[in-house]
Amino acid sequence: MSQEESRLRVQREDGVVHVEFIDRNILDEANIQMIGQELFSIVDTEKDPKLLLSFSNVDHLSSSALGTLITLNTKIKLKSGQLRLANIDRQIYEVFVITRLNQLFQISDTTEEAQASFE
């Protein structure tokens, strides 16, 4: 796997940046750092960052990936932007519940619902 290769699929819809994770497992530290850098640079370049993260391909994620999502959320809040999470598999959603991060993040069942929830 090339280190240069993006781990994300990014497209824009009605002012919202849709990001889909390509990896099934978001565990590897080096990978998580790369994903973090990519996400943070999207926030840096957006004037009014609105990000929708889709987890439809993701089977596993680690506490380190959760940490990156929290940092992303903080960066977006600092720019008065909005972050939505969607398409989270049942087992992964449980990880958010156990860590109570379902209280911190706005999580929708589908991309459509998430898209409609932006203010």
Binding site: L66, G67, N73, T99
Partner: peptide, 17 residues
Amino acid sequence: PTLDENLERPSGRGLVL
């Protein structure tokens, strides 16, 4: 990390899991 005041701390969740 599950306390309200710590929810935004990016680390410390491995043990909880």
